[in-house]
């Protein structure tokens, strides 16, 4: 069963190592991990998809809360989330460029580069959609595939975690900025 965790952390060198180390150390299986900036300066946001049972996912949350650099952790409920992955695929067009382009249209993906006998396709979507596109294109020959891993957000109102984060914005930014490992 996959669980989606959203982790807000200090934007400091080494924080990714701390989070990754925690998952490795506790034997939690990471399916994907993405990290990037947020609406607040000095705060990063990670989306981690883990393959595990509910109890283990909850323990992962408690472990993450123990990291000094973690501001908030949110475990997304099932079904009520927007989960998006970006894929870039270089696909051979030797067996028919038009068929490939047709599939691109069906999946509402984009062609972002064209070479003599291949194209680069960009596709954003749920994990399922991307997997379906990959499966459909496989017979044509996928020469290269790169995926970002999931970025996720709960649907509906602003999440409690994000609210708490905004409320704590007055908190002095980590005074020891940019020196943690």
């Amino acid at each position: 069963m996959s669980h989606v965790l959203v982790i807000y952390t200090d934007d400091e060198p080494g924080v990714l190592t701390r989070v990754a180390m925690l998952f490795r150390r506790r034997g939690f299986n990471i399916h994907s991990l993405t990290v990037g900036p947020t609406e607040r300066v000095h705060v990063s946001r990670m989306t981690v998809v883990v393959d595990t049972d509910e109890a283990t996912a909850r323990r992962a949350v408690e472990h993450l809360r123990k990291l000094v650099n973690v501001l908030e952790v949110q475990q997304l409920g099932h079904g009520r989330n927007v989960v998006r992955d970006l894929a870039l695929l270089r696909v051979s067009t030797r067996q028919g460029r038009s068929e490939v382009l047709q599939l691109v249209q069906v999946f509402r993906a984009n062609v972002v580069d064209i070479a003599d006998d291949s194209v680069v396709i960009e596709c954003t979507g749920s994990l399922g959609k991307i997997e379906a596109l990959v499966d459909s294109l496989r017979p044509f020959g996928i020469l290269e595939l790169g995926r970002t891993g999931a970025v996720a957000m709960a649907r509906g109102e602003r999440s409690e975690a994000s609210n708490r984060l905004a409320a704590s914005a007055v908190e002095a930014p980590g005074s020891s900025g940019a020196m943690s490992v």
Binding site: G14, T17, R25, K66, L67, M179, S180
Partner: peptide, 16 residues
């Protein structure tokens, strides 16, 4: 700091 990551609660590398 890399070596002691899993055996400390937290650690710091201070350069200034």
């Amino acid at each position: 700091t890399g070596i002691t990551l899993p055996i400390t609660k937290h650690n710091y590398l201070v350069t200034r």
